[in-house]
Nucleic acid binder design. Structure first.
Length: 533
DNA sequence: CCCCCTTTGAAGTCT
DNA sequence: AGACTTCAAAGGGGG
């Protein structure tokens, strides 16, 4: 489906829907402890949120305080800051960036930069750069109006991804993201090309034929717009991605990057996805993270073939293109490390539970950021892989457990996983739900967009269905148990909009208002419907 | 060694 | 149209 929201305002979308807090109650029962734990996490989060809301550049500093970074990084980081400052100035001066579309985006997402879990606690400067570069994607305004003046493209982006991106990236952009999970700890220093190391195995791999002939079904236009690999070059230093000879280097990769690039760099762009080998680069020179070479990726079979081995037959030809990440996934990637840092537990399942809750506790704006980001990713993905369909990946994974989840005792898992976190927690009162604290959920994506014909309309599924039902995955018992808690029915408290959002010029402003209203209107309905169950 | 678990969301298939 | 399935990330646990 074409993503027509080019227009933009609707991008934020997602607001109509409210995200119900499913299971809150149940979960609590199961994991009351967890709740408290969550609180703790929420604290962390709230602090982050504040930062973001303040939109101050303090975040980095704050983070720095929390986790002092290695000196080496400090320098580069410093530079980065300068750069951002500069960008910010431009933004303000030039007015190119009306108010931040995503006020929250900024610093809040950087979490991982200093996260000890990442890269052994020290994200290489390059990594930061990498992150910075990624950000632009987010910045891509859905609206043509926001386009960079330099942008050659017409204002109508229609269902095309705003490929043209702005050199001037939002100053904050860099922060975003995606973590560095790909920057595996112990990632080889600059001279080694991380991209050629299998993240899991750490085994250096030679560019695979499949990789060599990357398949970038980019539309001609898109391709043309994709700049050379300059962005791969770290700003501060060239540690990270060795650029093939001939590649041009731009002093400010981030600035030079356009939407396409940013997307390329986006979340899934793991270094290893970025072949340093000249051959591995597409003419565009831009690998996409979504593409996973069967040979390399430990896919379904779980086999990892470090060795390029035989040129994989057909499979190679058709690399596995991953689905674009959804908003929550993006959030997870970003926040996981943080959560992990907060808790001793490392089990992803447990972490994910927490993340799920935190997700709900996010303010609408915050979630909106991710929805937006996800939307962009999808757009980009669709552009990059026009013919790709989610269906293509069906069956590639090992068959998933058939919903037997019900039998599995999640409690077990939760219980034990939560405990570890609990230790940290202040054990304050266990609030019913994070939602209650924030007001919750609300943000579901895009309903508005849906209304607007946005392709990505976030399925209302969760928001609405989930509520009382506690959906699919949850054990039935839980679902049925108290489902209809007052909490769910609670009107949305969420009234706070960040000032920046209120900027008349900000698309977000409108979207926010729109969504807010929509939300208010819709919520009751959804509640009603749900509660009846 | 490989799947499960767990989360939400998107997109696919099925009824 | 609505319900249901699959997959996306992640990484410890367990068979």
């Amino acid at each position: 489906m074409p993503q027509l929201n080019g227009g933009g305002g609707d991008d934020l979308g997602a607001n109509d829907e409210m995200i119900p807090f499913k299971d809150e109650g149940e979960q609590e029962e199961k994991i009351s402890e967890d709740v408290s734990a969550e609180r703790d996490l929420d604290d962390v989060k709230s602090s982050l949120v504040n930062e973001s809301e303040n939109n101050s550049s303090s975040s980095d500093s704050e983070q720095a305080e929390r986790r002092p970074q290695p000196r080496a990084d400090a320098e580069s980081w410093e530079k980065a800051r300068d750069y951002f400052s500069e960008a910010l100035r431009r933004q303000q001066d030039g007015g190119l960036f009306k108010s931040p579309h995503y006020p929250g985006y900024p610093f809040l997402m950087i979490p991982d930069l200093t996260n000890p879990y990442l890269s052994n606690g020290a994200l290489s400067p390059s990594a930061r750069t990498y992150l910075q570069m990624k950000w632009p994607l987010l910045d891509v305004p859905g609206t043509a109006a926001l386009k960079d003046s330099r942008s050659p493209t017409p204002g109508h982006l229609s269902n095309k991804v705003p490929v043209v991106q702005h050199a001037h990236v939002h100053p904050l952009t860099p922060l975003i993201t995606y973590s560095n999970e790909h920057f595996s700890p112990g990632t080889p220093p600059s001279h080694l090309s991380p991209e050629i190391l299998d993240p899991k195995t750490g085994i250096p791999r030679t560019p695979h034929p499949s990789e060599l002939s990357p398949y970038y079904p980019l539309s001609p236009g898109a391709v043309g717009q994709i700049p050379p690999l300059g962005w791969l070059v770290p700003q501060q230093s060239q540690h990270m991605y060795p650029i093939p000879p001939g590649s041009f280097r731009h002093p400010y990769p981030a600035l030079a990057m356009n939407a396409s690039m940013s997307s390329l760099v986006s979340s899934r762009f793991s270094p290893h996805m970025v072949p340093h080998h000249p051959h591995s680069l597409h003419q565009t020179g831009i690998p996409h993270p979504a593409i996973v070479s069967p040979a390399i990726k430990q896919e379904p079979n779980g086999h990892i073939s470090p060795s390029p081995g035989p040129v994989k037959k057909e499979e190679d030809k058709k690399p596995h293109i991953k689905k674009p990440l959804n908003a929550f996934m993006l959030y997870m990637k970003e926040m996981r490390a943080k959560v992990v840092a907060e808790c001793t537990l490392k089990e992803s399942a447990a972490i994910n539970q927490i993340l799920g809750r935190r997700w709900h506790s996010l303010s609408r704006e915050e979630q909106a950021k991710y929805y937006e980001l996800a939307r962009k990713e999808r757009q980009l993905h669709s552009q990059l892989y026009p013919g790709w369909s989610a269906r293509d990946n069906y069956g590639k994974r090992k068959k998933r457990k058939r919903d037997n989840k019900t039998d599995s005792t999640p409690e077990d898992f939760s219980a034990r996983s939560k405990k570890q976190c609990v230790q940290y927690l202040p054990q304050e009162k266990m609030i019913d739900s994070p939602a209650s604290s924030h007001g919750s959920m609300l943000d579901s994506p895009a309903t508005p967009s849906a209304a607007l014909a946005s392709p990505a309309a976030p399925a209302p599924t969760h928001s609405e269905q989930a509520q009382p039902l506690s959906l699919t995955t949850k054990p039935e018992g839980l679902a049925t148990s108290q489902s209809t808690s007052p909490l769910l029915t609670r009107p949305i408290p969420f009234t706070t909009l960040h000032p920046s959002m209120l900027s008349p010029t900000s698309p977000f402003h409108q979207a926010a208002l729109h969504s807010h209203h929509a939300l208010l209107q819709t919520q009751p309905l959804s509640l009603v419907t749900k509660s009846t169950d």
